[in-house]
Design a binder for these strands. Structure first.
Length: 124
RNA sequence: UCAGACGGCCGGACGGCCGCUGGCCCGCGAGCGAUCGCGGGCUGGAGGAAAGUCCGGGCUCCACGGGACUACGGUGCCGGUCAACGACCGGCGGGGGCGACCCCAGGGAAAGUGCCACAGAGAACAGACCGCCCGUCCGGCUUCGGCCUGACGGGCAAGGGUGAAACGGUGGGGUAAGAGCCCACCGCGCUUCCGGCAACGGCGGCGGCACGGCAAACCCCACCGGGAGCAAGGCCGAAUAGGGGCGGACGGCGAGGCGCCGAAAGGUGUUGUCGCAAGGGCGGUCCCGCCCUUCCGCCCGGGUUGGCCGCGCGAAGCCCGCAGCGAUGCGGGUUCCAGAGGAAUGGCCGUCCGUGCCCGCAAGGGCACGACAGAACCCGGCUUACAGGCCGUCUGGCGCC
RNA sequence: CGGGCAGUAGCGCAGCCUGGUAGCGCAUCAGUCUGGGGGACUGGGGGUCGUGGGUUCGAAUCCCGCCUGCCCGA
């Protein structure tokens, strides 16, 4: 699983991979810190040193497939615009979509993410 | 112009910046190499329902030699279309609407079984409560013709009443009162002839009410149906294995092999090589057929992180022409049009479009919102959801010429 | 991807197969017993039968479409 990361030097601060396995999500949920905002819920746990991995969860309660896709894509975009340069390497993050994720003003959603990262101790 | 019916179509448009993903190309690096990594450029990138998964196919694997019976499921007027269908088209029959049109699981009730509550006298080869009529008798009245109440005997089913449904309906004749008892029309059944490929329809004749309804009750008849599903299935790589051990029982018959005896016929021992038998399997049963297996007991022993193919040139889309009422078919031209895998198609901004609200006398401005909904192997249908809009044909009403 | 079950009163369930009356328990309301509570007894109220159609004279029940929830198998 780490073969690609070895031969591909990532951009500084950019996510190096996605969390894909159920057990990764369970580990972050059980051992990590939580920070909730109206637009999202963040779970963060220390992972492999030097790499930042991120996963997304949007459950069926949020809505149908269109609504869930939209929430996940907006979270991806917010993470893409926010995380580089924050020095979050070494963390595994899980972003969970909520009812407000799809409708919330995008700038506010980004602010939610920054605040959640601070609360969870990922960034100072 | 208003109301309505049907058919077809669109389902936000254009642009900028930053991203994601498939393909192609270029550069750099690694490697003997296939190739891999990074960077850059060009280009493709959700739907009419992608949805629900209700049918039908393609494709893939499994089973399969044939037949009979049975079970289960589905379909059900006729003809056509289609690769196929439970879909579609055109008819027929029935029902609804002033109409354009719409709706219908629409075979069989004289094969059998069953059900028809309540009400009602009677509910399936029925029945007489009120009633109508005739006769006899008792009583009363009498303008002596008769009338009335009641009882008994008999005839009737027209009228009232019950019901979803009352054993044909309406009218006339007829009669003591009645009755298909007779007649006309309607309905029903049978039928000659005619039209139609057919479902069926029409004219006529006969019968003379004899066959009530429910099969989306069981059922009968006809036709159709092998099972599973892309997590199908295949390849590569990794790993473990596809077994091992111990003990016991015997191998039911025949053939063959091998050993021994014998000149030979043969005998004898051994052996799971072959056949039969036995056991098991081939949805259920049966027949033939095929396949598998020495048997029993105990003990020990696994693995599944990944990559690639399948995976998009197809019953394909678009534009014409011809045939057909139409579904559709045929011919010509043209286009290549998503391929992810915790799963790409996004974020932000501007102009326009539409809708709503607010400010304003107005010009205009501001704010918010953008229907239903996201490909997961593919295709043909069905069903369901859906803001707003466009085009065409037709019907009814009103007004005008 | 494939298969199955359920939806009936505030809650938990019958009734459906074999069509005509929706019933049981708890809860709730009123009354009686008690000084009051608890409890017991008596009586009462309450249901678009998930939804939209169809078949039938008549549908919770039979048939079809849809919605919601749950459970299996791969």
């Amino acid at each position: 699983m780490s073969g690609a990361a070895d031969s591909a030097p990532p951009r500084p601060g950019a996510p190096a991979g996605r969390l894909k396995k159920r057990k990764d999500f369970l580990r972050v949920a059980s051992r990590g810190k939580r920070a909730a905002r109206p637009g999202l819920v963040l779970q963060a746990a220390p992972g492999d040193a030097g790499t930042l991995r991120i996963g997304f969860t949007v459950t069926k309660k949020v809505g149908n497939a269109v609504v869930r896709n939209r929430a996940r894509r907006r979270l991806k975009e917010a993470a893409r615009l926010t995380l580089p340069g924050l020095g979050a390497a070494g963390w595994d993050l899980v972003l969970i979509g909520r009812d407000g994720t799809g409708r919330r003003e995008f700038a506010t959603l980004v602010a939610d993410l920054r605040g959640a990262l601070r609360q969870a101790g990922v960034t100072p």
